[in-house]
Amino acid sequence: MNALQWLTLIRHGESTGNLAHQAVQGTDAEETGITVRDPDIPLTDTGRAQAAALGRWLAALPEDERPTRVVSSPYVRALDTVRIALAQAPYEVGIEVDERLRDREQGVLEGLTPLGVRRRHPEEAERLNRLGKFYYRPPGGESWADLALRLRSLYRDLERDAPGERVLVAAHDAIIVMTRYVLEGLSEREILEIERTPIANCSVSRWNWLEGRLSAVSYNDCTHLTGASAATA
């Protein structure tokens, strides 16, 4: 049977977008203030330090757990995170880019705070409340269920193309949450309860092939970030 030996997911380090979201929390702002495209949002200095700490963790992995293949979201904050991390590791592996790992697209709600959505698109706020977070799709955007569809496609391709390999994935919080949903066969209720705990910047989540399936080893682990801020926004 084709199977990955290890699957390790990392969230990107702290970004300027994370700081922008934090700055408007608890205020009456209707917009986040982010002025660049989502794919172009860069890391902060803290995010780069987190990525270097992640690299030191990668360097310390046992040889039989080190990644043999690396796949990243095309977004700058994810790509830069894994590039910085791999520069700290004593082994060489190329970085592949796969757009299926991009962050969830918000469509017409891009750049708006929850208050901004309620004020500017009250009909969408009502639809979100009625459908629930998992199945709600903003106009021009994606639902959480849409993420599951593209991730099922991605992991099928990896199983076919990288059997027995140890794959490192650099992506976003929603991708990590929905990977758990896909791999562990969770329900809507279960994954939404899990999602209530934010995925920390540069956290590590891992699955290992055991007894015929990829089994969880760690989730949202930040112990390697001692000395670097583990921001969660």
Rank of each mutant, 00 (worst) to 15 (best):
D80R: 14
G140Y: 00
D103L: 10
G116Q: 05
I84C: 04
V93I: 10
K133P: 13
A78R: 09
V70I: 02
R100A: 06
L109S: 04
R69L: 10
V169Y: 02
G94A: 15
D146C: 12
T113A: 09
R77W: 07
R104N: 12
P90C: 06
H121S: 02
G111Q: 11
D98Q: 13
R127T: 10
P138T: 06
R150H: 03
R160Y: 11
G132A: 00
E105I: 13
P138A: 05
S143L: 04
R77E: 05
L131I: 06
D103P: 14
E110H: 04
D146R: 05
R100M: 08
L154T: 02
I84Y: 03
A174L: 12
A174F: 08
D146L: 12
A78S: 14
G116Y: 10
R104F: 00
V70G: 01
L154E: 02
A162C: 07
R150S: 06
R156A: 15
V167H: 00
Y75A: 03
A145I: 09
L154K: 02
G132W: 01
G132F: 01
V70D: 01
P139L: 00
A87F: 10
N129T: 14
P114E: 04
G116T: 03
P138N: 02
E105K: 15
R69P: 04
V71N: 05
V117I: 15
E126M: 13
D173T: 05
A125E: 09
V167D: 01
A148V: 15
S72H: 06
P122S: 08
Q88F: 02
G132I: 02
L115K: 15
D146V: 11
P122T: 06
V93C: 09
R127Y: 06
L149Q: 13
P138G: 04
E105D: 12
P90A: 06
A89M: 08
I84M: 01
R130K: 09
R130A: 14
Q88Y: 03
D157T: 12
A162G: 01
P74D: 05
A174I: 13
R100Y: 08
L147C: 07
F134S: 06
K133M: 13
A170P: 14
